[in-house]
Amino acid sequence: MKQAFFEYLLRLGDNALVLGHRLSEWCGHGPILEQDIAMTNIALDQVGQARSLLQYAGQVEGSGRTEDNLAYLRDVGGYRNVLLVEQPNGDFAHTITRQFLFDAFNYFQYEALRHSRDEHLRAISEKSIKEITYHLRYSSEWMIRLGDGTEESHQRMQAALDDLWMYTGELTEVTEVDEIMLDAGIGPGLHSIKGLYDEKVSAILAEATLQQPTGAWMQSGGKTGKMHSEHLGHLLAELQFVQRAYPGMEW
């Protein structure tokens, strides 16, 4: 049970960290100054959430690891984020689509986590849900704006959706850890979240005049740590550079 809870917190924390990190790569290079600020805002929220979650994960594990030990000293196989969030930024269409496909899931997930039996996780979720509600609104609006914007933007969005769709299955895939969390009243039932997720995604895609891909094979292996994509290693090489090059120092 403790191991499962630790794993579960890593999943939540790693999703926030990896996606926050990806967004931070845009910093200074956004398509409009206002969007640079907005993306940095989301990155800030997510890295902030990652800190709370990884700190808590360290406590639950009980072997003295801090948020930074967990973020900076685990290799690819130790990370528990879903494949979707580690995908590269690509163009703004890919970034927005990745964000939306994740936010829609994350929103329902955290809505449910507000009622978790675990008090500390409940408190983190209560704070995070406000931020995540904003993230979902932001990414939904941009899905619609770009999907229903110009011919070019529509094509770019459709291409992004086609590229990323195969990573959506993992979001609500039920693993052993999810079952243990559900039984303990800590985590939500992913079947019911899948229903809400599908509904939300279909509605936004319709408004964005985008075609929902069908029949795609769903990739998985991120949240169990069995098989990440090649992209995560590069992300970690950058994220962890200083700590790896100068081990054991205070920064």
Binding site: L17, H21, S24, E25, C27, G28, H29, L33, D36, I37, T40, N41, A43, L44, V47, G48, A50, R51, L54, E67, D68, A71, Y72, E238, L239, F241, V242, Q243, Y246, W251
Partner: peptide, 26 residues
């Protein structure tokens, strides 16, 4: 500064640097 935001040596530093750069955009 954006050049180091992805390599900040701790999560606390990463958040602070991101916030600083965001202030500059503002």
């Amino acid at each position: 500064e954006g050049n180091w935001v992805t390599r900040a040596p701790s999560l606390r530093r990463k958040v602070a640097l991101l916030a600083k750069i965001q202030d500059e955009a503002g």
